[in-house]
Amino acid sequence: MRESQLMFLQYLTGLLVVVFGSFHFLLISVLSPSPDKILYAYSGTSGAHVLVGGTLFYSWVRAVYSSLIWGSVLELLLTFLVFHVFNGFRVVLSEIFPGTRADKIITYALVIVALVVFIWGSRTVVLALNGGF
């Protein structure tokens, strides 16, 4: 791919991360089946603060992402994030370590790490769709 194509995708995914990230954060609190509709509820009885309720409580978040639509939103967010982050790393590293050989090593290494992160993240999304893990 040409650098201009990659950089166009870099800017586009940056924008999409903001849009989908906003969905991710805002809609959890809107769609969460949490009865109290507050973000966090801590219990301090044991001496340590432990999250016990609220819309960001694990089981409520998982409930939102058991829906196919919101699971797809999460998967898309993951896709955009992985591309944006690892292409950004590539740009930074190729600037610090210039050279054709270094460019190749950096690109291949980051493609492998990006694929691992993407597959692992997708696994989490798919498991959430199936009701939990």
Partner: peptide, 9 residues
């Protein structure tokens, strides 16, 4: 111009 060390850096 459109290389890894061109205009986009």
């Amino acid at each position: 111009l459109d290389s890894k060390h061109g205009v986009w850096r």
